[in-house]
Design a protein around this nucleic acid. Structure first.
Lengths: 333, 333
DNA sequence: GATAAAAGTGGAACCGGTTCCTATAATGTG
DNA sequence: CACATTATAGGAACCGGTTCCACTTTTATC
């Protein structure tokens, strides 16, 4: 079926080493070059990547480990990585772990075994086992979304996004605030976003009540928690640590017959596409996933080629003002 | 770094052919088995997949071509394929074409070159070039979402979904209907969904007005088109060929100050996650993407192993009743 | 216990490339 | 024009597996 380098050599009447040299830009004479080019065209030759990788002991593939495929952040990040890698003549191979940390570890070893040039991990949590695996495989690794002192990473500016969001709602006049966060095991979302927000809260001079709650990442859990809080003491605003949590709050609000943003304001973090589709649209801190993916791709390729890269890169964010916050409130001021 | 089969052979004091035989379930003596097992454990040996693929002239990887990563249908389908392939000890490799038909063709050839065992294509449109490529590469191919007489495929039941949706809204009492479809170049969505719907319309005895319009797949285009139609003649219901189009219609409705479903009812097709998150939630025909992906994975593996598979498999659907249709309308009856 | 069949093992070739080494041809230098 | 360089080409070894073949050792059969 598909032809080999020996076939080409035979057709062109040269040695296969010469064909290889031609393909890899070594010195070949004019006549020989012509003959080989002709033969390659004729036989529609393309090199067998396995033979190449076998010899090179290395591929041009970057393994990308992703906890889930069905999230806006994941797909956007993957798109960014993919586009950039294509430009750099690398390939992306995705391993979906369905949110299993165990599968994540397996994937690291499996990628190393498959001689991936590098590994990008869309990280949620970095455990001891991760570090162990990274050290064992000796393949360049880059994290997206979480940071670690020993590993290169591209993160979103969670702290400042939290701070900016806090600042924003204070400026709009809110002084009684419910912050709906997540577990502190998640450093980026659970800790840094909240700390940024807290800092903004601390800077306010006036009397200001902030209650901190904790829920899960999924919509139904957030909805249930929000319902509970609304029944307990109805705050005028929910600042949610993720867009999904905000969506849960919105559902709870509808169920309780509250009007957004008049009775209840809501904000999120993420900038998911759905936040602008819904009505009322959601005020949120938008992160640039695709851009972060591109940066990650650039960096991992640098690392693969043993060039130096700053250990930590912080991707930017932007507060998107939409309809879920009452911008004419100015009460309490 | 990583050890080879020869290392194992040396450590165990046997020939490498024996080690290979051991690994592939050939006949090996008891003592030899023990020694080899010991050696493998000691050296942490795992076979080099490139050497294996080089010899086998084949991989256990299924190449999956997907027009876009950031769509609910895509990610769900990919998840289904991936899960099933993992169970069958195959791997999935994704090629994202960013909706470029040209890249789609390239990917087919590239997958063949990389000796993929089979190819799954999440299809939007099948051109002559596709067929040509499929014939040229001689690799088993399976389509999801579109059908073709010459190629195995798993499709959604677009015709009956269209029919059921038509039936459903007639039953709810609607008699003046706007159908917002897409180009007929898309056989599944543009032709079959619409035909099913038309058939339901034709079966009604009473006087019934149906207008057919055409728009693009994206939300802004649908929104603009809907706005136009509303201004022109305000129908009580929009039946939209996809959930995204329905979302566009909802946006247009909000902009015009119409209340859903009282002033305007809306339905979609797809069953995207967002349709149940929004308020009011969207009545839609849900397809089972993940399931279809699993079926596709099962079938491509059968094809790879040269077993026979029915040429066409039709995945099921379900009408999901939600809030965007007024179920107490019963007017005109 | 002789003989046939089966099980176990090693050696060598092969998959399709790359690369090192050596030999020859083409060029440059004084 | 003799001699030193340099460009070009071929041969062989190698990457890490699998498989075929031949040979030896067990085991089964009567």
């Amino acid at each position: 079926m598909s032809s080999t380098i020996s076939d080409i050599a035979k057709i062109a009447g040269v040695a296969k080493s010469t064909v290889s040299r031609y393909l890899n830009g070594g010195s070949v004479g004019d006549k020989t070059r012509k003959k080989i080019e002709q033969a390659i065209k004729e036989a529609k030759y393309t090199p067998n990547p396995f033979a190449q990788s076998l010899k090179a002991k290395k591929t041009n593939i970057i393994g990308t480990i992703v906890p889930r495929l069905d999230s806006y952040a994941s797909s956007q990040t993957l798109i960014g990585i993919d586009e950039q890698l294509k430009r750099l003549n690398y390939q992306m191979l995705i391993s979906n772990t369905s949110q299993s940390l165990e599968r994540e570890i397996e994937s690291i070893y499996s990628f190393a075994n498959q001689k991936m040039a590098g590994i990008i991990l869309l990280a949620t949590e970095i455990t001891e086992q991760h570090i162990e695996a990274f050290e064992a495989v000796k393949v360049p690794v880059l994290l997206i979304g979480q940071e670690h002192p020993e590993i290169h990473s591209v993160i979103h500016d969670d702290f400042h996004a939290g701070y900016a969001m806090g600042h924003y709602i204070l400026e709009k006049g809110y002084r009684d605030i419910a912050y709906l966060g997540v577990t502190e095991r998640d450093i980026a979302v659970g800790v840094k976003r909240k700390h940024g927000f807290k800092k903004a809260m601390e800077e306010v001079q006036q009397d200001c009540h902030v209650h901190y709650y904790e829920t899960e990442f999924n919509i139904p859990a957030a909805q249930a928690k929000a319902r509970e809080i609304i029944h307990d003491h109805q705050p005028p605003i929910f600042v949610c640590a993720t867009d999904n949590i905000a969506l849960g709050v919105l559902k709870a609000a509808y169920a309780e017959g509250l009007s957004i943003p008049k009775d209840l304001a809501v904000t999120g973090f993420g900038g998911y596409e759905v936040t602008e589709i819904i009505h009322p649209s959601l005020t949120t801190a938008k992160f640039f996933y695709q851009e972060a993916g591109e940066t990650a791709a650039k960096h991992i390729v640098e690392l693969v080629n043993e060039r130096s890269v700053e250990k930590l890169t912080i991707s930017k964010f932007k507060i998107i003002e939409r309809e879920s916050v009452d911008i004419n409130l100015k009460h309490g001021i």
